[in-house]
């Protein structure tokens, strides 16, 4: 599984990154969480509001910090 967080470096993007890393660690997974900060790369995913979350090439979330339960459900589904 491959997780990417799209965001130009605002506070919400950092918070999203941290939440996902915590959830990954809590579930004992060994997944690389990547940050995509370049605006051209972000636009390639067709996301209009940041932070966005991409799992295995699919956009699962855009705009605002996702809830903990949401993150847990993505991780469970992608396992």
């Amino acid at each position: 599984m491959e997780i990417k967080v799209l965001g130009t470096g605002c506070a919400n993007c950092k918070a999203t990154m941290k939440l996902i890393e915590e959830a990954v660690a809590a579930q004992g997974l060994t997944v690389q969480v990547q940050k995509v900060e370049d605006i051209q790369d972000i636009m390639r995913y067709g996301v209009m509001s940041t932070p966005g979350v991409v799992i295995d090439g699919k956009v699962v979330h855009a705009g605002g910090v996702p809830g903990k339960d949401k993150i847990a459900s993505w991780l469970a589904a992608a396992r």
């Binding site: 130009t8 509001s49 605002g64």
Partner: peptide, 14 residues
């Protein structure tokens, strides 16, 4: 429309 100034650029291009 929900808007945060940090999304101004992605929104603009979108």
């Amino acid at each position: 429309t929900p808007f945060c100034s940090c999304s101004a650029v992605p929104l603009f291009i979108g």
